[in-house]
């Protein structure tokens, strides 16, 4: 079993979370949507697996490279 960190490529805030812990994800699925520079930026799963943990929630400020959630696969 490997844990993959899902990180933010941009600085901004969390707008909405589209999935829950335990949900199965496929690479490319949208996990959450960030707001950055007045734009909605989808965060896509980098790998197939299961959502293990969320480190952020809506309205949280986030930095570039910050870990948003983890995927177990």
């Amino acid at each position: 079993m490997t844990i993959t960190n899902v990180t933010s490529e941009v600085i901004g805030s969390v707008w909405k979370v589209e999935m829950n812990v335990g949900d199965a994800v496929k690479a490319g699925d949208t996990i959450m949507i960030l707001e950055s520079m007045k734009m909605e930026i989808p965060v896509e799963a980098p790998v197939d697996g299961k959502l293990a943990e969320f480190m952020v929630q809506p309205e949280d400020s986030i930095d570039e490279d910050q870990v948003l959630c983890t995927i177990e696969s």
């Binding site: 490529e9 941009v10 950055s36 520079m37 007045k38 734009m39 930026i41």
Partner: peptide, 8 residues
């Protein structure tokens, strides 16, 4: 690229 920093 609007997907990254809105292209800023």
């Amino acid at each position: 690229n609007p997907k990254f920093y809105s292209g800023a």
